[in-house]
Design a protein around this nucleic acid. Structure first.
Length: 204
DNA sequence: TCTCGCACCTA
DNA sequence: CTAGGTGCGAG
C-alpha cells in the first residue's frame, strides 16, 4: 500500500517463531496452532520475538512451516533465513489488517469492548440501547454486514488486533475501518475461517 | 497522531 | 496473590 504522505522505509520483515515450536507431524495435524501470544509493536527497540510494524500500514500475515529433523536445534528467529530452509508458506487473506495506534472507527471500539474479556470494565452496565448492534441499526450510513456477527469473524477480529502496552510503550496492532469501503472488506471475510484450507503462497 | 498512567478486568 | 491485557483521556 502506497502512502500519499512521505515515503517511510518499511522495517525488514520479521519472523515470529511460535513459542511452542517445534511441532511434530501429529501436532500439526491435530492441534490448533494459536498465535495469540504474538506481540506486535511499533517500537523499533529490539525485543525478542516481537513483531515490529508501522502504524497506518496494512499487513498480510504469512505462516511458514519450516522442516526440522529430529534433535536439530531451533534457530534464533532473527537469524533464520527462509531461503536456506525447506519450508512451505501459507497465506490467509482474511487475516489482513491495518496497524493503528487509535481506532479509526467507533464500531471497532464497541466491538472490542463487547467481545473481549479484558475490556469488560468498559461495558455499559445495563444500557441495552448502546451496544454496537443497536448503534448499527440507528446508523443510516454503512451498515455492518451480518457476517460481522459470525463468531469466527469476531474471533478473527480479536486475534487480528493486538496491543502490547506495558513494558513496551505503545505497541499495537488494531483493526482499521474508516470507510464503507473498508467495511466492505470485512464483509468479504470468509465465515469459515477455522475450517478453510490454507492456500499456498508463491514462495518469495 | 502517539504515549503514558490509570482503573478495571482476566487468567 | 501476581502478571498482564483492556480502552480511556490527558498531554
Amino acid at each position: 500500500m502506497v502512502s500519499s504522505r512521505k515515503a517511510e522505509p518499511s522495517p525488514m520483515a520479521r519472523l515470529y517463531m511460535h513459542p511452542d515450536s517445534p511441532f511434530t507431524h501429529d501436532q500439526l495435524q491435530k492441534q490448533v496452532i494459536s498465535f495469540e501470544k504474538a506481540k506486535l509493536t511499533n517500537n523499533d527497540v529490539e525485543k525478542t520475538n516481537h513483531l515490529i510494524l508501522n502504524s497506518m500500514h496494512k499487513y498480510q500475515p504469512r505462516v511458514h512451516i519450516v522442516r526440522r529433523e529430529k534433535n536439530e536445534p531451533i534457530d534464533d528467529p532473527l537469524m533464520i533465513r527462509l531461503s536456506d530452509e525447506s519450508y512451505r508458506s501459507f497465506v490467509f487473506p482474511e487475516t489482513q489488517f491495518m496497524a493503528v495506534t487509535a481506532y479509526q472507527n467507533q464500531l471497532i471500539t464497541k466491538l472490542k469492548i463487547e467481545k473481549n474479556p479484558f475490556a469488560k470494565g468498559f461495558r455499559d452496565p445495563g444500557g441495552r440501547d448502546s451496544d454496537y448492534e443497536s448503534d448499527l441499526r440507528m446508523d443510516s450510513r454503512p451498515l455492518v454486514p451480518p457476517s460481522l456477527y459470525n463468531p469466527a469473524l469476531l474471533q478473527q477480529a480479536l486475534l487480528t488486533q493486538y496491543w502490547l502496552g506495558k513494558q513496551n510503550p505503545s505497541l499495537l496492532s488494531r483493526l482499521f475501518f474508516s470507510s464503507p469501503l473498508s467495511l466492505e472488506s470485512v464483509h468479504s471475510l470468509s465465515p469459515s475461517i477455522p475450517q478453510s484450507s490454507p492456500s499456498p503462497s508463491k514462495t518469495p
